[in-house]
């Protein structure tokens, strides 16, 4: 019963974040940039709940994004899985009061994530002007994601706190 409730909360979180990211945020884009809400969700979940759960959520969320973006299925699933896996390492130093660490994780991983996309989809097609992409896409997205992350993490922390397994195994 408790498990089902946790599951429902999680699915609701995914759904809401997904809808925010794809349909609502384009109306609030600054200079054509939208924040990466799904990344905030995956990082927060992995940090709060645990590595394995974060990884599986990352895979699921990435798969959803892949489906939505069409053409190739898999790259985002891969990226988000690794993001969940990496964030999960920090689960063992999880304290409810600390907000700086997850925010650093969010910004850092958003950078890594965008670097991954740049290398995979742009650099390999001979788009070499990294400076432009860095200053016009990566940095604005990091800043915007951070700004949204401050609020969203607190919110997710409140909601996801209930989905945490009773006996947590910690980091590894």
């Amino acid at each position: 019963m408790v498990k089902i409730k946790k599951m429902l909360i999680l699915i609701l979180c995914i759904l809401v974040c997904f809808l925010i990211q794809t349909s609502l945020l384009p109306y609030f884009s600054l200079a054509g940039i939208v924040p990466n809400v799904m990344l905030i969700l995956v990082v927060s979940y992995a940090y709060i709940v645990g590595q394995k759960e974060g990884m599986l959520l990352g895979f699921f969320v990435g798969f959803l994004m892949d489906l939505f973006c069409g053409e190739l299925i898999g790259p985002y699933a891969l990226f988000y899985t690794y993001i969940g896996y990496f964030s999960g390492f920090f689960h063992f130093i999880y304290y409810t009061e600390i907000i700086i660490l997850p925010l650093i994780l969010i910004v850092g991983l958003d950078f890594v994530f965008n670097m991954g996309i740049y290398v995979m989809f742009f650099l390999l097609r001979n788009r070499l002007d990294f400076g432009f992409y860095f200053s016009h896409i990566i940095v604005p997205e990091m800043i915007y994601t951070l700004a949204v992350g401050v609020f969203l993490y607190k919110l997710l922390h409140m909601v996801l706190g209930h989905t945490k397994p009773e006996i947590s195994e910690g980091g590894m």
Partner: peptide, 25 residues
């Protein structure tokens, strides 16, 4: 999502998912 996988170490799970993703691609 989190049933029978309690015993699998995270590393192997990660490898599995990675392979799955490449398969999807």
């Amino acid at each position: 999502m989190q049933e029978e996988k309690f015993e699998i170490p995270h590393k192997y799970l990660l490898c599995g998912i990675t392979i799955l993703c490449f398969l999807f691609i």
